[in-house]
Amino acid sequence: MNNMKLVLKIISYIGIGLTIIPSILFLMDKIELSQLKLYMLIGVFVWFGSAVFWVGKGKK
């Protein structure tokens, strides 16, 4: 169970990375705006697809 949670957390952090890193790459002229939008959209699915299983669980 703990291993599963660890995997989910790692996936969520990848989602976080996909949310913030593309904007830095765009600022540095490494990617285009269209790529930034695509990566950030993937980040939405990765974050919500994994974070719902562990963020705020077991806390009131």
Binding site: I20, S23, L27, D29, L33
Partner: peptide, 10 residues
């Protein structure tokens, strides 16, 4: 934050 950073890029 990402939107602000990307905005600076424009």
């Amino acid at each position: 934050v990402a939107a602000a950073i990307a905005s600076i890029g424009t």
